[in-house]
Design a protein around this nucleic acid. Structure first.
Length: 568
RNA sequence: CGGGGCGUGGCGCAGCCUGGUAGCGCACCUGUCUCGGGGUCAGGGGGUCGGAGGUUCAAAUCCUCUCGCCCCGACCA
């Protein structure tokens, strides 16, 4: 491709609404243009990257025995009513009517459609297992689209659905997808991690997420390499500390704390650490409000809390008037001593002695609180988010926490949809058996953003080779004035293209600085500079996007280097 | 959904408070000198000031309505 014919415009300034680096760089480099909230046009340069991702995903899915098909983006409401999700899915589902006032939605996912395909297509156990996949545009009407293509409303996803005769088969299909996903992200050249996850809206039992590691990631991942453990912080379990509780050394004392509403205030007033305090959160329960007790320095984990029998799901914080009515005190002055509401204690709280907490009376706290003496030794549950240094479930090490961007998710759905929609096959004994389903998603468009979050510097994008829109950029210096340069550049361009590389020849009549800056911004891995200076010495100037210095190489050396890199 | 903010040329912004013939930077076009890290000088094209209504001799500017977009909040105890 000749730059002069590529109609690429790069920006020095960034549209004001771009928050994160990948969004800014994608706009500046001309990969995408925003049309409306959460809607993007993929410009030619960006589409090249998108296609690279798609191709790797497609090849690995095919290799794993999955069958590509393409389902409609628009889906009839009946199927969603049948699965029960027409009412449950909520405003995230973009609904519409056709001219006959029939209800449709723009598919945010395709469990219903694929289950319909399967029940009409698959009749015998002999046809199983089957794994169908598609690469297709989805729409989710997000409350707040942001971060460019990372959380857009319209996006491209690879979604796959497996059908098996039994749980054993499902496990095999799932394992195969796990392996395929690992191969995909390795081939894309991204640093990633597989974590245990909450199955969330889609439902089902076992599920794992694939995260591209990046500091700006929305998700926190708890992991421990010694223990081969990794989990989304949402689902990472904590256990009872195995240390014995220290004996009480202080007397229970109620003291005035006017204006103290937060743990931070309290710690400042008393000069104690947050780990010696206890906080009390009131949430809606299944039968009136309930209190959740956590150590002052810990965070409540909503996913865990809403799974408790007495707690309403989804988790909802009680409003202050409810709290006042129930306890006679306001948030900020609550505590377990004398608490009249049903109470859940986090494991870590039970290990405390001589701690501080609210007195259930505005403007007062207790200190020197001790279990057994001041309140009964509690039953405890897992309520909090894990923190760095927590022991791992396997017990071999301690947890670290990294940030990640979720780019893949694999689920064992089981029979949730196949049962609701009566997707059965006939078994060898003539019985009809409900198929076991798995579903497996990869955010194609999100991968592009995630790759940039992970791979960039102050000058622009640094594409991993497999994702780069071009393998090599030829910067021809003063090509329009020097016949030598023109001839050398054209010859090199022809030869590299012939060798199967994606080559971008910067043949613009622009000053060198402009060309260098653009080459770096759009992040092409290999750069070869062709100028009179080098030609006179019989050399070309080579530099990898990750390098800080250029190297003068013979033409043959450059050719070999590039041809080798293209074989990968 | 609640709160805040913003809509002025392709992008980033000023002008609005205090009404009086729409401006700057980038990008774009022509020419010029320059020529290996986003150059210089000169000239130029491009804007129903988000939309509708109102006030006024006069509205980007004031008022009302409306549409769109962005940000914050959904752990605070």
């Amino acid at each position: 491709m000749r730059f002069s014919e590529f109609a690429l415009t790069t920006l020095k300034e960034v549209p004001a609404d771009a928050e994160i680096v990948s969004h800014k760089l994608m706009l500046r480099a001309g990969l995408v243009r925003r049309l409306s909230s959460g809607l993007f046009t993929w410009m030619p340069l960006g589409l090249r990257v998108l296609r690279k991702v798609e191709n790797v995903v497609r090849e690995e899915m095919d290799r794993a025995g999955a069958l590509e098909l393409l389902m409609p983006a628009v889906q009839p409401a009946e199927l969603w009513v049948e699965s029960g999700r027409w009412d449950k899915y909520g405003p995230l589902l973009l609904r519409m009517q056709d001219r006959h006032s029939r209800e449709f939605c723009f598919g945010p996912t395709h469990e219903e459609v694929i289950t319909d395909v399967a029940r009409s297509e698959l009749r015998s156990y002999k046809q199983l297992p089957v794994n169908y996949y598609q690469i297709q545009t989805k729409f989710r009407d997000e409350i707040r689209p942001r971060f460019g293509v990372m959380r857009s409303r319209e996006f491209i996803m690879k979604d796959a659905y497996s059908f098996d005769i039994d749980q054993d088969g499902l496990q095999k299909s799932y394992d195969r997808m796990h392996a395929a996903y690992t191969a995909i992200f390795e081939r894309l050249g991204l640093k990633f991690r597989v974590v245990d996850a909450d199955s969330g809206e889609i439902g089902g039992s076992r599920s794992q997420e694939f995260h591209v590691l990046a500091d700006s990631g929305e998700d926190a991942i708890a992991y421990c390499d010694e223990d081969h453990y990794a989990s989304n912080v949402e689902t990472a379990a904590t256990s009872k500390p195995d240390v014995d509780r220290a004996d009480a050394t202080e007397d229970l004392e109620k003291f005035p704390t006017p204006g103290v509403k937060t743990i931070e205030d309290l710690c400042e007033l008393l000069g104690v650490g947050a780990a010696q305090t206890v906080k009390t959160l009131v949430v809606e329960g299944t039968d009136g409000p309930v209190a959740l007790i956590l150590r002052g320095d810990h965070e409540l984990n909503a996913v865990k809390a809403q799974k408790l029998a007495g707690v309403a799901s989804p988790l909802t914080m009680a409003d202050p008037s409810t709290i006042w009515k129930a306890t006679g005190a306001n948030p900020g002055s609550l505590g377990p001593v004398g608490m009249t509401l049903p109470v859940y204690f986090d494991h870590a709280v039970a290990a405390l002695s001589d701690f501080t907490c609210g007195a259930n009376e505005d403007g007062f706290h207790y200190k020197g609180v001790n279990f057994e003496r001041d309140l009964p030794d509690p039953e405890t549950v897992d309520l909090r988010n894990v923190v760095i240094g927590d022991p791992t479930p396997g017990g071999k090490g301690t947890l670290s926490i990294a940030r990640g961007i979720e780019v893949g998710h694999i689920f064992q759905l089981g029979t949730q949809y196949s049962e609701a929609m009566n997707a059965t096959v006939q078994a060898s004994d003539g019985q009809n058996i409900v198929m076991e389903m798995g579903c497996y998603g990869i955010g194609i468009t999100r991968i592009v953003g995630a790759a940039i979050e992970q791979n960039h510097d102050e000058n622009g994008i640094v594409w991993p080779g497999p994702l780069a829109p071009f393998d090599v950029v030829l910067v021809a210096i003063n090509m329009h004035r020097s016949d030598d340069v023109r001839e050398a550049a054209e010859a090199l361009y022809a030869e590299l293209t012939e060798a199967g590389l994606d080559v971008l020849l910067d043949d613009r009549d622009a000053r060198p600085g402009v060309k260098f800056a653009d080459a770096e911004l759009i992040g092409i891995p290999h750069r070869v500079v062709i100028g009179d200076r080098g030609i006179a010495k019989g050399e070309l100037e080579y530099r990898h996007r990750r390098d800080t210095e250029s190297r003068d190489l013979k033409r043959e050396e450059v050719l070999n280097l590039l041809k080798e890199s293209s074989i990968r």
